[in-house]
Amino acid sequence: MKIAEHSRPELTKRLASPDGLRLEVGPFSVRIRSETGVFPPFLRSLYADFPLSSPETVADFRIRLRRPKTFRRFLQPQIIFESDGQKLFQPFPLSHAPPLFEWGLNWCIGTRAHQYLILHAAVLERGGRAVIMPALPGSGKSTLCAALMLHGWRLLSDEFGLVRAEGLLDPIPRPIPLKNQSIGVIRRYAPQATLGPEFPKTRKGTVAHLKPTPASVARMRETAEPAWIVFPRYQEDSPARLSPLVPSYALLKLATNAFNYEVLGAEGFRRAGRLIRRCELYSFQYGHLEDAMNVFDSLPGR
């Protein structure tokens, strides 16, 4: 059953129960307990199409959003992210429980899921072929990724390229966190898109989450074949320009930007190397989303 098929009180009750709620997120099962009323509405609207895991699964991550029991809760309520009973970060203001959950789950995946080579990249797929966009500073990757998804590409992830041993990519199509100006850009680009509430003054400025398209979530069990690696760079008012990249540069950038390249050792090198060999490699400069969409509609491939 999907999240949206449960009423908000039902979700709240499930989240508050000792067993929590088991959410299926791509290849992972996440057990969530939450004592705050701020979280269920966020879950219900942005994870609407995600299924609950069967109660027999063993959760990959066991997360709890907990109110600290200090005197401070009366003055300035806070929320703590716990994984396996361990507090991971400094408390957030209570109203920021949703971005804390998103950030904490990212942390869990990035530091633990070493069955994958975990690229720090946005990944989308169309016609059975996936494009990987590594997240380098100033790339505008989230904005581009959001626009591509709204333009009909299937979202695999805005944050993680999960590379399996045989080289295929596992989807984890969670909500896309848009930051600051990106929020307005996407609202203008696609007025019909569902965005969550804006959370001002987070570590990364104002954040609002874009709901993944139902088609992306419905196919989150379907792996995708990597076909392109595109390093995007946003430059105000620049014309869209796609230029080929040398493999050595692409490999270096991809590997050093991954979450666990070193942890995987030789296996990390092999997986990254195979990825580079089977993909077309480009750098991509753009200034307008519409131009970018046109380029991506006809990405030259083998």
Binding site: S29, V58, D60, R112, H114, Q115, E262, L264, G265
Partner: peptide, 21 residues
């Protein structure tokens, strides 16, 4: 070992190999 647990055990071995390296 059920699948969910197997993934975690496998990942932990990758990490232990890394620390030993």
């Amino acid at each position: 070992i059920p699948p969910g647990a197997r993934r975690q055990l496998q990942a932990s071995r990758v990490f232990a190999d890394f620390r030993n390296r």
